[in-house]
């Protein structure tokens, strides 16, 4: 699986918005996703997120991630089918394994919820510069710099980590260690051969990074800030629309819309 989580330069309207506006939008998407459990409402939310991805011009990059998320959603539906027995039966897989409407709806809802939330967050990451995120988190949202750096370093490490996994896997398979067999017991054992060196190498890398941060004066006292960000009209309107939507959604939800009775 490949994860697209890094800034892609672009000139779309989404790119030019301030991180704060985008963070608020992402949060609203997440609130909406959690608020509703009707598959149709969630589908609409999901498509609205896709539309934003399209406007930002990052839809293409997200395809592979979407595929993985889609697969994961299918698993969620399957799990629901296995464990939800109530409700109207659509059809039977076997005599003892009915597929109920509830199960399909619930699974679909969960899948869509997850996809909408993850995608909106990825769109935020793909259209926002690393440095702007740090600045927004520390300056606008007043989060402590240490925590922001832990978070950002974790993100920075994703590609490194994926690359390390690949290298360790290759090194072990070159010693005759088979990682693609079918026997789960053998497989678990084989993965110890990947996990252990990976942990050790990652610890080495983390130590090196910490050392580098020290020598660059990290955490030495008051910092300055390269560029302050100002909210533009477009930003403000996005924030306004997002918050309005959220309020509207909460009201609608309180009045009984958007829920599916299981």
């Amino acid at each position: 699986m490949t994860v697209a989580n890094e800034y892609i330069p672009g000139n779309s309207p989404i790119h030019s918005m301030t991180p704060l506006a985008k963070i608020i939008w992402t949060s609203v998407v997440m609130i909406l996703a959690l608020l509703f459990n009707h598959p149709l409402y969630l589908l609409a939310l999901f498509f609205s997120v896709l539309l934003v991805a399209k406007i930002a011009g990052v839809l293409k990059v997200l395809i592979s991630t979407l595929k993985s998320l889609f697969l994961f959603s299918l698993i969620l539906i399957l799990l629901q089918v296995l464990f939800t027995k109530e409700g109207e039966v659509i059809f039977y897989i076997t005599e003892y394994l009915p597929v109920t409407k509830n199960a399909v709806y619930l699974g679909t809802a969960m899948g869509l919820r997850m996809m909408a939330a993850v995608l909106s967050f990825l769109i935020f990451l793909l259209t926002t510069r690393f440095k702007d995120i740090i600045q927004t988190l520390t300056n606008n949202l007043k989060l402590p710099i240490d925590y922001v750096f832990i978070f950002m370093t974790a993100l920075r490490f994703i590609p490194t980590f994926l690359n390390e996994i690949k290298q360790v896997k290759e090194a072990q398979s070159c010693r005759g260690c088979s990682l693609d067999g079918w026997n789960p017991l053998v497989k678990i054992k084989a993965y110890a051969a990947v996990a252990l060196p990976l942990v050790l190498v990652s610890l080495q890398k983390a130590d090196k990074l910490a050392m580098a941060m020290e020598t660059r004066g990290c955490g030495s006292g008051p910092r300055t800030c390269y560029r302050e960000q100002k909210m533009s009209a477009a930003d403000l309107s996005l924030v306004f629309i997002s918050i309005l939507l959220a309020v509207f959604a909460v009201l609608a939800r309180l009045n009984g819309y958007g829920t599916y009775q299981y």
Binding site: Y7, F130, K131, I134, T153, G217, C218, T224
Partner: peptide, 26 residues
Amino acid sequence: DPESHLITMEVEQELIFGLENMAVDP
């Protein structure tokens, strides 16, 4: 091993990082 010692994800930010820490005038 520069790969392990670079802290940020972007070229400019890598330089800014140290300058901000040292409280250089923006």
